[in-house]
């Protein structure tokens, strides 16, 4: 029974990925496409094996930037939403700033951030934070506002303190939205990291892609993309696992 469910759930997506890869492989062979123009999946696999040292080294750089950036982002979003819970007027104060931070494309800020903070780890972390804190904050603020008024009334009628209300009602009520925000943040943090590395860096997967492209090492660019996708997937599924554990008692 369990085996059947696994087959039913995982077979279609696995099959579709394999189908695209096989189609890609045969198209490159049949149309005789040069590998500097479009490497075949097997070429990319060979590149992954041959350059594993450089890819692994730079993947770890990107991963560390992303991890630190995400942690800071999560902390900032928790702080902002906590302030919004405790001080209602704080929302009006912070909202214009939040929106402005998103209206300015972060991509255009990146060169300035490199000038201000150099090409090291710090500028990348700031770019990742700018990319990721918005979905986190928006999800949290929306969840705070959506807490059922009748539930709040019920807690009030029990004579609870604001701290008890936060701990026993708000935290569990906003947890699902917070984790959804984390999933989005995990995926876009990779984009932030690559943009930062692309604009000014001497390591990381974005940097590998930037220097490999002009040298027509297209297979290496694709291999870097594979590594980036892998990082995003690992982060995403880490949150999914966390979600399964933390939300196991929630309906649906």
């Amino acid at each position: 029974m369990k085996k059947n469910i696994i087959i039913k759930n995982y077979l279609p997506p696995t099959a579709s990925v394999f189908f695209v890869l096989i189609l890609w492989q045969f198209s490159v062979i049949i149309f005789n496409v040069e590998s500097w123009f479009l490497p075949s999946p097997s070429n990319i696999l060979i590149e992954l094996i041959n350059s594993y040292e450089i890819l692994l080294e730079n993947s770890l750089v990107t991963l560390s930037e992303i991890t630190i950036g995400l942690i800071i982002s999560i902390l900032i979003s928790i702080m902002i939403s906590g302030m919004i819970f405790w001080f209602k007027s704080f929302e009006k104060t912070i909202y214009p700033l939040l929106i402005t931070s998103q209206i300015i494309p972060v991509f255009t800020l990146a060169p300035i951030l490199i000038v201000w903070f150099g090409t090291g780890l710090f500028s990348k972390i700031i770019i990742i934070v700018l990319f990721t804190f918005f979905p986190l904050v928006i999800n949290l603020v929306t969840a705070i506002k959506n807490v059922d008024m009748d539930m709040i009334r019920m807690f009030n009628s029990l004579g609870c303190t604001k701290f008890q209300m936060f701990r026993k009602l708000y935290i569990p009520a906003i947890l699902p939205n917070f984790l959804s925000g984390c999933k989005v943040a995990c995926v876009i943090s990779v984009i932030g990291a690559v943009i930062g590395e692309w604009i000014g860096s001497s390591n990381g997967l974005g940097w590998v892609m930037k220097i490999s492209g002009p040298q027509f090492q297209t297979a290496r660019v694709f291999a870097s993309i594979v590594c980036l996708s892998f990082i995003a997937l690992v982060l995403f599924f880490t949150v999914v696992m966390l979600e399964k554990k933390l939300l196991r008692r929630y309906p649906n």
């Binding site: 019920m154 009030n156 009628s157 004579g159």
Partner: peptide, 30 residues
């Protein structure tokens, strides 16, 4: 508030992440 008077509203207002035992005990917990 909460002293001498219990208030029950139309909706059952059970917290979906708590089981029956934990829901029933919330007032005493507070």
């Amino acid at each position: 508030v909460g002293d001498k008077i219990s208030y029950m509203q139309q909706k059952d207002l059970l917290l979906p992440w708590r089981n029956v035992r934990e829901n029933a005990g919330i007032g005493l917990e507070i």
